[in-house]
Simulated assay, not measured.
Amino acid sequence: ARALAREPQVLLLDEPFSALDQVTRRKLLRQLIELRRSLAIPIILVTHDLEEAALLADSMTVLHHGHTLQTAAPDELLARPGSALVARLTDQPNLFGATVSAQSAATDTTLIDWLGQPLQASHHAAFAVGDRVCWVLPEAGVILVRDHQADRENTFPATVSERLAWRGHATVTAYIADHRDVALSFAIGTAVAQRRGIVPGARIALQLQKGAICLTPADPAIGTHGSINADPTGELRK
Protein backbone atom coordinates (compact mmCIF):
# COMPACT_ATOMS: atom_id res chain seq x y z
CA ALA A 1 0.00 0.00 0.00
CA ARG A 2 2.84 2.43 0.84
CA ALA A 3 4.50 1.68 -2.49
CA LEU A 4 1.28 2.41 -4.41
CA ALA A 5 0.61 5.62 -2.48
CA ARG A 6 3.44 7.29 -4.41
CA GLU A 7 1.73 6.40 -7.72
CA PRO A 8 4.80 4.67 -9.19
CA GLN A 9 5.26 4.14 -12.92
CA VAL A 10 6.63 0.62 -12.28
CA LEU A 11 6.07 -1.70 -9.32
CA LEU A 12 8.98 -3.98 -8.35
CA LEU A 13 8.22 -6.98 -6.13
CA ASP A 14 11.32 -8.87 -4.98
CA GLU A 15 10.24 -12.30 -3.66
CA PRO A 16 7.28 -10.83 -1.72
CA PHE A 17 5.94 -14.20 -0.54
CA SER A 18 9.18 -15.94 0.46
CA ALA A 19 8.73 -15.73 4.25
CA LEU A 20 4.99 -16.44 4.41
CA ASP A 21 3.11 -19.54 5.46
CA GLN A 22 1.13 -21.42 2.80
CA VAL A 23 -2.32 -20.09 3.76
CA THR A 24 -1.22 -16.44 3.89
CA ARG A 25 0.79 -16.85 0.70
CA ARG A 26 -2.20 -18.13 -1.27
CA LYS A 27 -4.43 -15.37 0.09
CA LEU A 28 -1.97 -12.65 -0.93
CA LEU A 29 -1.42 -14.29 -4.32
CA ARG A 30 -5.13 -13.97 -5.04
CA GLN A 31 -5.09 -10.34 -3.91
CA LEU A 32 -2.11 -9.57 -6.13
CA ILE A 33 -3.81 -11.21 -9.12
CA GLU A 34 -6.80 -8.90 -8.59
CA LEU A 35 -4.52 -5.89 -8.02
CA ARG A 36 -2.57 -6.36 -11.26
CA ARG A 37 -5.84 -6.37 -13.20
CA SER A 38 -6.72 -2.93 -11.83
CA LEU A 39 -3.28 -1.31 -12.17
CA ALA A 40 -2.24 0.36 -15.41
CA ILE A 41 1.49 0.03 -14.68
CA PRO A 42 4.03 -2.71 -15.32
CA ILE A 43 4.78 -5.07 -12.42
CA ILE A 44 8.15 -6.80 -12.21
CA LEU A 45 8.10 -9.85 -9.96
CA VAL A 46 11.39 -11.48 -9.00
CA THR A 47 10.87 -15.02 -7.73
CA HIS A 48 12.38 -18.49 -7.52
CA ASP A 49 8.89 -19.99 -7.30
CA LEU A 50 7.64 -21.24 -10.66
CA GLU A 51 4.02 -21.40 -9.49
CA GLU A 52 4.05 -17.72 -8.53
CA ALA A 53 5.51 -16.71 -11.88
CA ALA A 54 3.08 -18.84 -13.89
CA LEU A 55 0.05 -17.55 -11.96
CA LEU A 56 0.93 -13.87 -12.08
CA ALA A 57 2.92 -13.23 -15.22
CA ASP A 58 1.92 -12.14 -18.70
CA SER A 59 5.53 -12.72 -19.71
CA MET A 60 8.19 -14.76 -17.93
CA THR A 61 11.98 -14.56 -18.26
CA VAL A 62 14.37 -17.30 -17.17
CA LEU A 63 17.77 -16.03 -16.02
CA HIS A 64 20.87 -18.14 -15.43
CA HIS A 65 24.06 -16.65 -13.97
CA GLY A 66 22.93 -13.19 -15.05
CA HIS A 67 22.08 -14.19 -18.63
CA THR A 68 18.61 -14.25 -20.16
CA LEU A 69 17.83 -17.71 -21.54
CA GLN A 70 14.24 -17.28 -22.71
CA THR A 71 11.33 -14.85 -22.47
CA ALA A 72 7.79 -15.95 -23.31
CA ALA A 73 4.26 -16.21 -21.97
CA PRO A 74 4.18 -18.74 -19.11
CA ASP A 75 2.19 -21.38 -21.00
CA GLU A 76 4.49 -21.09 -24.03
CA LEU A 77 7.68 -21.16 -21.98
CA LEU A 78 6.62 -24.24 -20.03
CA ALA A 79 5.32 -26.08 -23.10
CA ARG A 80 8.14 -25.05 -25.47
CA PRO A 81 11.36 -24.45 -23.55
CA GLY A 82 14.08 -23.18 -25.86
CA SER A 83 16.77 -25.42 -24.40
CA ALA A 84 17.29 -28.33 -22.06
CA LEU A 85 18.67 -25.89 -19.51
CA VAL A 86 15.42 -23.88 -19.53
CA ALA A 87 13.51 -27.14 -19.11
CA ARG A 88 15.67 -28.05 -16.12
CA LEU A 89 15.36 -24.61 -14.54
CA THR A 90 11.57 -24.76 -14.88
CA ASP A 91 11.52 -28.21 -13.26
CA GLN A 92 10.32 -30.24 -16.24
CA PRO A 93 10.46 -33.87 -15.03
CA ASN A 94 10.18 -35.51 -18.47
CA LEU A 95 13.46 -34.57 -20.15
CA PHE A 96 15.51 -37.09 -22.12
CA GLY A 97 18.10 -37.44 -24.86
CA ALA A 98 17.41 -39.06 -28.25
CA THR A 99 18.53 -39.16 -31.89
CA VAL A 100 16.57 -37.89 -34.90
CA SER A 101 15.90 -40.87 -37.18
CA ALA A 102 13.53 -39.43 -39.82
CA GLN A 103 11.92 -36.17 -40.94
CA SER A 104 8.63 -35.66 -42.79
CA ALA A 105 7.22 -32.18 -43.26
CA ALA A 106 4.35 -33.71 -45.26
CA THR A 107 3.08 -35.64 -42.23
CA ASP A 108 4.23 -33.03 -39.68
CA THR A 109 6.49 -35.61 -38.06
CA THR A 110 9.99 -35.76 -36.66
CA LEU A 111 10.80 -39.32 -35.68
CA ILE A 112 13.32 -39.82 -32.90
CA ASP A 113 14.94 -42.96 -31.58
CA TRP A 114 14.52 -43.30 -27.83
CA LEU A 115 15.44 -46.44 -25.89
CA GLY A 116 15.74 -48.20 -29.24
CA GLN A 117 12.12 -47.42 -30.11
CA PRO A 118 10.57 -44.84 -32.45
CA LEU A 119 8.89 -41.82 -30.90
CA GLN A 120 6.90 -39.33 -32.98
CA ALA A 121 7.05 -35.58 -32.39
CA SER A 122 5.60 -32.74 -34.43
CA HIS A 123 7.90 -31.65 -37.24
CA HIS A 124 10.98 -29.75 -36.02
CA ALA A 125 12.70 -28.52 -39.18
CA ALA A 126 15.77 -27.24 -37.31
CA PHE A 127 17.13 -30.76 -36.82
CA ALA A 128 18.59 -33.19 -39.35
CA VAL A 129 18.53 -36.97 -39.38
CA GLY A 130 21.30 -38.21 -37.11
CA ASP A 131 21.28 -35.15 -34.83
CA ARG A 132 21.34 -35.72 -31.10
CA VAL A 133 18.54 -33.81 -29.39
CA CYS A 134 16.78 -33.47 -26.09
CA TRP A 135 13.04 -33.91 -25.88
CA VAL A 136 10.75 -32.43 -23.28
CA LEU A 137 7.20 -33.43 -22.45
CA PRO A 138 5.03 -31.59 -19.89
CA GLU A 139 3.22 -33.83 -17.43
CA ALA A 140 -0.07 -32.92 -19.14
CA GLY A 141 1.25 -34.52 -22.34
CA VAL A 142 1.47 -37.98 -20.75
CA ILE A 143 -1.88 -39.76 -21.07
CA LEU A 144 -2.94 -42.84 -19.12
CA VAL A 145 -4.62 -45.17 -21.62
CA ARG A 146 -6.45 -48.46 -21.22
CA ASP A 147 -4.95 -51.80 -22.19
CA HIS A 148 -6.96 -52.07 -25.41
CA GLN A 149 -5.47 -48.72 -26.54
CA ALA A 150 -1.87 -49.85 -26.07
CA ASP A 151 -1.27 -50.08 -29.83
CA ARG A 152 -1.65 -46.32 -30.31
CA GLU A 153 1.31 -44.29 -31.52
CA ASN A 154 3.84 -43.29 -28.86
CA THR A 155 2.39 -45.71 -26.30
CA PHE A 156 4.70 -47.46 -23.86
CA PRO A 157 4.11 -50.08 -21.16
CA ALA A 158 5.09 -48.82 -17.72
CA THR A 159 5.04 -49.75 -14.06
CA VAL A 160 4.00 -47.31 -11.35
CA SER A 161 6.78 -46.56 -8.90
CA GLU A 162 5.25 -43.70 -6.90
CA ARG A 163 1.95 -41.90 -6.40
CA LEU A 164 1.75 -38.64 -4.47
CA ALA A 165 -1.71 -37.22 -3.76
CA TRP A 166 -2.58 -33.67 -2.71
CA ARG A 167 -5.91 -31.82 -2.77
CA GLY A 168 -7.65 -34.05 -5.26
CA HIS A 169 -4.71 -34.46 -7.63
CA ALA A 170 -2.14 -37.21 -7.90
CA THR A 171 1.35 -36.98 -9.38
CA VAL A 172 2.40 -40.40 -10.64
CA THR A 173 5.89 -41.61 -11.54
CA ALA A 174 6.23 -44.75 -13.63
CA TYR A 175 9.25 -46.47 -15.13
CA ILE A 176 9.20 -47.55 -18.76
CA ALA A 177 8.98 -51.29 -19.53
CA ASP A 178 12.19 -52.95 -18.30
CA HIS A 179 14.05 -49.65 -17.88
CA ARG A 180 13.78 -49.11 -14.14
CA ASP A 181 16.07 -46.08 -14.40
CA VAL A 182 13.83 -44.32 -16.97
CA ALA A 183 10.78 -42.71 -15.37
CA LEU A 184 7.94 -40.58 -16.70
CA SER A 185 5.85 -38.28 -14.54
CA PHE A 186 2.20 -37.38 -15.11
CA ALA A 187 -0.75 -35.97 -13.18
CA ILE A 188 -4.31 -37.25 -12.85
CA GLY A 189 -7.21 -36.77 -10.47
CA THR A 190 -7.00 -38.71 -7.22
CA ALA A 191 -10.41 -40.28 -7.86
CA VAL A 192 -9.26 -41.51 -11.29
CA ALA A 193 -6.06 -42.92 -9.77
CA GLN A 194 -8.06 -44.81 -7.16
CA ARG A 195 -10.59 -46.10 -9.70
CA ARG A 196 -7.86 -47.29 -12.07
CA GLY A 197 -5.81 -48.89 -9.30
CA ILE A 198 -2.81 -46.61 -9.80
CA VAL A 199 -0.57 -47.76 -6.95
CA PRO A 200 3.13 -48.68 -6.83
CA GLY A 201 3.66 -51.88 -8.79
CA ALA A 202 0.61 -51.45 -11.04
CA ARG A 203 1.22 -52.08 -14.75
CA ILE A 204 -0.14 -49.37 -17.01
CA ALA A 205 0.14 -47.99 -20.55
CA LEU A 206 1.17 -44.39 -21.23
CA GLN A 207 0.72 -42.45 -24.44
CA LEU A 208 3.10 -39.57 -25.09
CA GLN A 209 1.23 -36.89 -27.01
CA LYS A 210 2.98 -36.20 -30.31
CA GLY A 211 2.05 -32.52 -30.41
CA ALA A 212 3.23 -31.91 -26.85
CA ILE A 213 6.77 -33.22 -27.38
CA CYS A 214 9.26 -30.37 -27.74
CA LEU A 215 12.73 -30.96 -29.20
CA THR A 216 15.71 -28.84 -28.17
CA PRO A 217 19.42 -29.01 -29.02
CA ALA A 218 21.39 -31.76 -27.31
CA ASP A 219 22.74 -31.11 -23.83
CA PRO A 220 25.72 -33.12 -22.52
CA ALA A 221 24.07 -33.29 -19.10
CA ILE A 222 21.04 -35.13 -20.48
CA GLY A 223 21.26 -38.77 -21.51
CA THR A 224 18.77 -41.17 -23.07
CA HIS A 225 17.66 -42.14 -19.58
CA GLY A 226 17.24 -38.52 -18.56
CA SER A 227 20.18 -38.50 -16.16
CA ILE A 228 21.27 -35.02 -15.15
CA ASN A 229 24.92 -34.48 -14.31
CA ALA A 230 24.52 -31.00 -12.86
CA ASP A 231 22.08 -29.13 -10.65
CA PRO A 232 21.37 -25.76 -12.29
CA THR A 233 20.11 -22.75 -10.41
CA GLY A 234 18.26 -19.89 -12.00
CA GLU A 235 15.89 -17.04 -11.44
CA LEU A 236 12.46 -16.29 -12.87
CA ARG A 237 11.23 -12.81 -13.55
CA LYS A 238 7.77 -11.69 -14.54
Results as ranks from 00 to 15, higher is better:
Q149E: 15
Q194G: 03
V172W: 03
L13N: 05
S38H: 07
H148W: 12
I44C: 02
V46D: 09
T90Q: 05
E235D: 06
R163K: 04
F96P: 00
D231R: 13
G97W: 01
G116H: 00
T107A: 14
Q149T: 09
Q9H: 11
A3L: 13
L20H: 04
V86A: 09
E235T: 12
H123R: 10
I213A: 07
G82A: 11
A202S: 12
R37N: 09
V199C: 02
T155H: 04
I228K: 11
T99G: 00
L29R: 15
R30C: 01
V172E: 09
L13G: 05
L206Y: 01
L4F: 03
A230Y: 12
D75M: 10
V172T: 10
D181H: 12
A128T: 11
E34L: 09
D75R: 15
A72L: 03
F127D: 04
W166N: 15
A84V: 01
R80L: 05
I198S: 07
A187F: 04
A87H: 10
Q149A: 15
G66T: 08
G197I: 03
Q149N: 11
E34G: 06
G66S: 08
A126M: 02
V23H: 10
L56P: 07
L137W: 05
A218F: 10
I213L: 07
D14A: 01
V136I: 13
P232L: 06
T99M: 05
A174G: 04
A174Y: 04
L69I: 02
L236M: 09
